[in-house]
């Protein structure tokens, strides 16, 4: 049983790319394609379709499912929705990249060393409570409207959750493991690479997940405050013309992106934290 469990998480070496993909798809969509969930989802979708059609709610406020689907098709085919999604994703990826690139090392260093922690941590603790959207005006004035400003705002949203979770996880590394590595001669660098990071893997991935969620929030806020492209801009534009169906399409796509990224993180965690399965 345990063995099978292990296999499922890909412990066997030399797994082909195709099988990796199917494993990912299975774990990602597995929770969606079940009878149990279908018994909840199908009635909900039916209600969404029926309620406006039957006049239970005004269909100017709640567009029925079929119209949203048609609009989505139309937007993909005729209005270049792909382009907007792509540009949003590029911005998001840039912001996340910078956040990961800075927050992970700083968090690890602060968790590892008391000297660095005492110097750096209070600064972050002072800055972090400022809600990221409060940075929007000053960022626009300093960086102008454009990619740097959007990247910076997304970075800001993702930075603190990743930083604090990494720091906390590394700080709380079990001293027994450190002692046992030290007896055998591990240098501090080896401890960081082979003990701290592995022990803190759970909190780090958790931090990245929260970072993704907050990064998406900041993506929409950034795109609503300027720019002529992206999903946030589309949302705002649809509001100007009172196009409910287009707004819903944007929301559905944003939800799907967030869900997909979280699933990717779950997959990464399952791959890296093989050893935690079965505990």
């Amino acid at each position: 049983m345990l063995n099978r469990h292990w296999k499922k998480y890909g412990a066997t070496p030399g797994m082909s790319g195709l099988r990796e993909l199917s494993f990912f798809l299975k774990t990602a969509f597995g929770g969606l394609v079940t009878i149990e969930f279908a018994s909840v989802l199908v009635p909900l979708l039916a209600l969404w379709e029926l309620a406006p059609r039957q006049g239970w709610v005004p269909d100017t406020l709640v567009p029925p499912l079929s119209r949203v689907a048609m609009t989505m098709w139309d937007m993909f085919v005729n209005h270049g929705l792909w382009g907007h999604i792509a540009i949003s994703l590029v911005r998001f990826a840039l912001g996340m990249f910078f956040a990961l690139f800075t927050a992970l090392p700083i968090g690890v260093l602060m968790g590892w060393n008391l000297f660095l922690r005492k110097h750096a941590l209070p600064l972050f603790q002072l800055l972090a409570p400022v809600p990221p959207p409060a940075w929007v005006p000053i960022t626009i004035i300093v960086l102008g409207v454009g990619l740097p400003m959007q990247t910076y705002l997304i970075f800001l949203g993702a930075f603190y959750p990743i930083l604090f979770n990494t720091y906390q996880g590394v700080k709380e590394t079990d001293p027994r493991y450190l002692a046992s590595a030290r007896v055998f001669g591990a240098s501090e660098w080896t401890l960081i690479r082979s003990v701290y990071i592995w022990h803190a893997l759970g909190p780090i991935i958790m931090g990245i997940k929260i970072g993704i969620a907050l990064g998406l929030v900041m993506l929409i806020i950034a795109e609503m405050h300027g720019g002529r492209s992206g999903l946030g801009y589309m949302l705002l534009e649809s509001k100007e013309f009172f196009q409910m169906d287009r707004m819903v399409v944007c929301m559905v796509i944003l939800g799907a992106i967030g869900w997909f990224l979280i699933e990717v993180m779950k997959y990464v965690e399952a791959k890296l934290a093989l050893w935690r399965v079965g505990r």
């Binding site: 030290r182 055998f184 001669g185 591990a186 240098s187 501090e188 660098w189």
Partner: peptide, 9 residues
């Protein structure tokens, strides 16, 4: 601690 970079008991 042992040393910063070199593994040596």
């Amino acid at each position: 601690a042992n040393s910063l970079l070199r593994d040596r008991p």
